[in-house]
Each structure stands twice: as C-alpha cells, then as structure tokens.
C-alpha cells in the first residue's frame, strides 16, 4: 500500500503522545535514582573489597550486564510471580522501574568504580594523614571528585535509560511508545506515528544533554 506522508497527522498526534511522556519520564527518573543508589553501593563494596559481599556484587554485575534488559523485564514481570507470591500484585509500571534500575545499576556501578579508582591515591593519603577515616575521605573528598569524572558516563546511562523505558510497553505500561503503537495500529500510519515518537525521544534527549553540559560546567569549577 502506497500512501503519502501526512504531516497534519503528526501534528495532531503530538499532543496525544505527549500526555504519556510523563509516564516515560517518571520511569526514567525513578529508575535512574534507584539505579544510582544501587550502583554507588555496589561500587563501594567493590572498591573497599568487603569480604564475601564483593563476590555477590561481582555476580550481580555479571548477570545484569550479561543478559538482555528485555529478558530481565520478562523474568521479573512474567516469571517471578509464578514462584514468589510477593511479586503477584506488582503492577507493570513498578516492574519496569525495578527492572530498569537493576539493569542499569550494574553498568553504572562499573562507571562509578572506575571513577573512584581514577582519583589519585594521594588524595586518600592526604585525608588519612590528617586523621580522617576512609569513609569520611570517601564522602568528603573522593566521591565529590569521582562524581565529576563519572558524570558524563552516568548521564549517558540516563539517556540510554530514557530510551529503554520504551521496552516497558512489552509489559503493558501505557507509556509513550505504547501509545504510538496503539495509534499506529488504528490509523495504519505507522511511519508517521513512529516518527512522531522518535522525535519526542530525540528532543527529550537533547534537553538532557544540555542539562549535562550545565552540570559538567558546574562540576569543573574547581579545575
């Protein structure tokens, strides 16, 4: 079937899709927040080489980096409830946030760990020399410096996460991608619908890239 490009359709579709952008961004922001907390914990466990737990952390990172996000989401949402009753009541939106944070925390943990290890050893020594504990040194000197190093790659993961929320539609979350798919199926204007959703993702990513640059500028103040 040959049809002509329908710009008018896209213009009309945009506000309909944008209503669902909130769901997409909510998943991305919550997912990123939890991923960041998890990743920081994992990174510290590995940096401090905490006995036993560090092996669990390595296993965790290996699994979540070694399997596709879609498989993890399906396991979590369709698989686990069959074995663990606590997962039965979980809605798709929550499952998507949990899945995204688990998955991305594995990658982000490695970024954070690398950033921490990249801070010159002398910074830790200087902290210890004035009587600070390792934990105090981490909090007040090492992590603030590491956060500057890690920001570009963490922002990269955030952007990746925004786009990965589109997978949540396979769990039945009514987010922007799901809405585009629905509209396309009823209008048969697949090209226009998916182009519209692509443009929205793109603009959102451009916006956060700007934020990233502002953030980097701020963090580089001391250098």
């Amino acid at each position: 079937m040959q049809s002509s490009f329908d710009l008018q359709y896209i213009i009309e579709l945009m506000p309909i899709l944008l209503k669902y952008l909130g769901v997409t961004m909510e998943m991305a922001l919550w997912g990123f927040l939890f991923a960041l907390i998890l990743a920081l914990g994992l990174a510290l466990v590995r940096v401090f080489k905490i006995a036993f737990i560090q092996h669990l952390a390595s296993l965790y990172i290996s699994f979540f980096r070694g399997t596709p996000l879609l498989v993890q989401l399906f396991l979590l949402y369709y698989g686990f409830p069959q074995f663990m009753p606590i997962f039965v009541g979980m809605d798709a939106f929550t499952a998507a946030i949990i899945g995204l944070s688990l998955h991305f925390s594995a990658y982000m943990a490695e970024s954070i760990r690398a950033a921490i290890l990249g801070i010159d050893k002398s910074q830790m020594e200087a902290c210890l020399s004035i009587g600070m504990t390792r934990l105090q040194a981490m909090k007040r000197v090492i992590l603030p410096q590491a956060s500057r190093v890690a920001t570009p790659s963490l922002m990269n993961y955030f952007i990746d996460m925004i786009k990965s929320t589109s997978l949540a539609f396979t769990l039945g979350v009514a987010e922007i991608m799901a809405k585009a798919q629905m509209e396309a199926s009823s209008s048969f204007k697949f090209f226009e619908s998916f182009l519209a959703v692509a443009v929205i993702y793109w603009v959102v990513v451009i916006f956060f890239t700007r934020i990233q640059h502002l953030l980097e500028y701020r963090l580089n103040k001391a250098y």
Binding site: C127, S129, I130, Q145
Partner: peptide, 30 residues
Amino acid sequence: RKQSSFVFQNYSLFANKTALQNVAESLITV
C-alpha cells in the same frame, strides 16, 4: 594519625576544595 600531620612532596591538596576548605577540613571532620 591524629597525633601527626603530613606535608607531601606533591602537596596533595584536596582538589575539590578551596584553600580555606582544605585547611578547615580536619577541624570539621576529625
């Protein structure tokens, strides 16, 4: 360590802190 302090060959100042914050750090934290 609290009984001594160290001056390093390569200064090793806290790169994320101002001169004032570098000097005040032990007082505040320790």
